[in-house]
């Protein structure tokens, strides 16, 4: 157990620190409500305007609405920027200290990123559920609400899949961090990642709504595992065996990206040591 202590400390210190940014959480919440509401109205206009196409759509309007609120609520765990602490460390030179500590830098940064993400997640998702899941039905707008999971088993599978989604997002963030450390510049990679993440996670539009011939590709690419797969498990569009295929895909990408990240970080760190950077 003692061997894990530094990592547990790194996680919880970051978590507690992030919990202090209440104003930021509130601000984020209002933004999410606004974007979520506009998204929902646009989706509704398309679905209601073309009943035949809507009937043929792989997900129903109410599923797409729930998807939208989930995507807004889970915004904090989207892997679109590297850990700002790493970027700061690169600028100030503080990351050299991480090389001097008797810990595994990959694991340390990974748990720190996880603390950073989950702390931002908790208040936002809670507020989002309150607004879209409880307040909306109470004011008679139940058709635009965030619906509960399709079933108990869907809920349990979603919990598992969402945990894996966060683990996968952290693995992707680690890759971004490594690029930041290798190029000594955070802006470039963040700018290039953002559009990719917004499209391929499903944050912009549920992946199922893209043209059908892209469906397989969109399902197996790594970003799907950070949002689209757990969401579809949540409202039962991925159920039974297919749910396990989705979870298997998430596990596959976590293993692959963590392995890649560890190998790459080792090389980058070795190079930094040679340069004395």
């Amino acid at each position: 157990m003692d061997a894990l202590r530094p990592y547990a400390a790194a996680f919880s210190s970051r978590f507690l620190l992030m919990m202090q940014y209440r104003a930021a959480a509130l601000a984020g919440f209002f933004t999410q409500c606004w974007f979520g509401a506009v998204h929902v109205m646009v989706l509704a206009a398309f679905y209601l305007g073309a009943p035949e196409a809507a009937a043929a759509s792989p997900i129903s309007l109410s599923q797409a609405v729930t998807y939208t609120w989930l995507a807004q609520g889970l915004l904090a765990v989207m892997p679109w920027v590297g850990d700002p602490e790493i970027a700061d460390g690169v600028r100030t030179g503080a990351i050299s200290y991480d090389r001097l500590r008797p810990v595994d830098p990959y694991a340390l940064w990974y748990v720190r990123a996880a603390g950073w993400m989950t702390a931002r997640l908790a208040p936002r998702v809670a507020l989002m559920i309150l607004a879209a899941g409880i307040v909306l039905p109470l004011i008679g707008q139940g058709q635009w609400a965030w619906r509960p999971p399709a079933s108990l088993s869907a809920a349990l599978l979603f919990a598992l899949s969402e945990a894996l989604a966060i683990a996968l997002a952290c693995a992707i963030i680690m890759l971004i961090n490594i690029v930041v450390v290798a190029t000594l510049n955070a802006r470039g990679v963040n700018i290039l990642m953002q559009p990719l993440v917004i499209v391929f996670t499903g944050n912009l539009l549920p992946l199922a709504l893209y043209p059908d011939n892209l469906r397989t590709f969109l399902f197996v690419q790594p970003f799907a595992g950070t949002l689209d797969i757990p969401n579809r498990i949540y409202f039962g569009a991925l159920a039974g065996q297919m749910a396990w295929v989705g979870i298997g895909l998430q596990l596959f990408w976590i293993t692959t990206l963590v392995t890649l990240g560890r190998w790459w970080l080792g090389r980058v760190m070795a190079r930094l040591e040679v340069q004395g950077g």
Binding site: V42, L43, A45, F46, Y47, G49, A50, A53, A54, S57, V199, L204, L205, L209, Y210, P211
Partner: peptide, 13 residues
Amino acid sequence: VSIWALFDRFGAI
């Protein structure tokens, strides 16, 4: 891109 995808699926709005 998202607007295009929606039109592609639903035709018109």
